[in-house]
Computed example of a mutant assay.
Amino acid sequence: MSTNVRSAGRPSGLARPRSLLFAPGNRADLIAKLPRSAPDAVVIDLEDAIPGTPEAKAAARPVARDAARDLIAAAPHLPVFLRVNAVHSPYFAEDLHVLTPELAGVVVPKLERADDVRQVVNALATSGLTLPILAGLETGAGVWHAHEILREDAVRWAYFGAEDYTTDLGGRRTPGGLEVLYARSQVALAARLTGVPALDIVVTALNDPARFREDAELGRALGYAGKLCIHPAQVALAHELFGATPAETARARALLAAAHDAATQGHGAFSFEGQMVDEPMLAAARAILAQDHAGLPHAGGTHE
């Protein structure tokens, strides 16, 4: 059942992962190396990283299951997600057998309506699992219904997928990304209104840090919490661009300390570094400190 975002079903202070590093589900060697770049969380992928044939999907599942188990044992503090195929695909039902309660959550791509989320929740329950969902919004319908999808209590994180979105619309990806700016902004807005941290689009130029930096700066400006990463080298850049800098953290602490002193002295208004302080400035400072201390919990699911 859908409930208001302030309901008890969604805990306050949800973590804001800066990086989500992907690895193909059929590559145990790459999955074992995921912790080396110190991402905030990782995703073992059974969807786009695996060829779309029944044989390839079937072969990848046991590899992904065993590699996830080994990774969780080797890096117990690293949140490990598994991305299944879309709920309406012929592979979704079999993918569920790979999920275990030790996972931090399940990544579900191409969600298009709140009913899709409920179908996932029911399917998980049938398998005896309760896992939080990282929702993929990467079709026209998914972007259009982003707010209702993210209001579902099971959805704890989200991402926008520009490549699939553009394909769904029959458009073309361009270096400037103007073709996805509207949808990218819509997902960020829906995430803000529902309190769900959203991760920004993939940068496919693996050996172009300047391109990644430019794109990530735009994503942060739009309000995204972090970035999808498809190469280990992108993780450090994501942390730099989506994390608070030491200078920003220090300034936020000083501003809030000054606000506390002013309130103690009975002053409703005060100046800080030559600026008159208002509530939006204080809210921004609190957000910086919350981001600086946020961590992504590892164990997201329970076994019923």
Rank of each mutant, 00 (worst) to 15 (best):
R251S: 01
V98M: 09
S271Y: 01
E138I: 03
A269M: 07
G226R: 01
V106A: 15
L289W: 11
A236V: 02
F92P: 03
L30N: 01
H77G: 09
T130C: 13
F272V: 10
W157E: 01
A67C: 08
G223Y: 07
A233I: 07
L82I: 14
V106D: 10
L129Y: 11
L150G: 06
R65T: 09
Q186V: 11
G266L: 02
F212I: 13
Q234V: 01
E179I: 12
H231Y: 08
R192D: 02
D48Y: 09
A257I: 00
P132Y: 10
L71Y: 00
R211H: 08
D116V: 09
R173Q: 07
S2Q: 09
E279V: 14
A290I: 04
N122F: 10
P175E: 14
E240Y: 04
A210T: 15
F92Q: 10
S127M: 15
V235R: 06
A259K: 03
F81G: 04
P297L: 13
H298L: 13
G9H: 08
Q275I: 01
A154W: 04
P39T: 06
R253F: 01
H77N: 09
H145N: 12
L96T: 09
D66N: 15
G105E: 06
D164F: 12
A294K: 08
L282I: 08
I230V: 11
E163C: 01
G300I: 15
G226P: 00
E163M: 02
A60F: 03
A254E: 03
V42Y: 00
R172V: 12
E148H: 01
V42C: 02
K33A: 02
Q119L: 14
G226F: 00
I72N: 01
L30D: 03
L20F: 03
A284P: 03
V196C: 01
I201M: 13
R253Q: 05
A162Y: 06
L103D: 14
R211Q: 06
A146Y: 05
T249Y: 01
D116I: 11
L30M: 08
F22V: 05
P232H: 06
D116Q: 11
V84W: 07
D153K: 08
A56M: 06
S12V: 10
A205R: 09
A283Q: 09
G295Y: 15
A58E: 04
A32F: 12
Q234H: 01
E148D: 05
A287L: 10
D115W: 02
E179G: 12
A188C: 07
L46T: 02
S12Q: 10
A15M: 07
S2D: 06
A190S: 11
D95M: 14
H77D: 09
V43M: 08
T3F: 10
T249W: 00
L169Y: 02
L78H: 04
G171C: 14
G195T: 03
A236Q: 07
L124H: 06
F242L: 08
V43F: 07
L193A: 12
H97R: 15
V98L: 11
A158G: 07
V143K: 03
Q275D: 02
H88T: 14
A257Y: 00
P109Y: 11
L71M: 05
A244Y: 11
E179N: 11
S127P: 10
R192A: 06
G266V: 01
P39N: 05
P90K: 12
P209H: 10
D45W: 12
T100D: 15
G171L: 14
H239T: 04
E47I: 02
D153F: 05
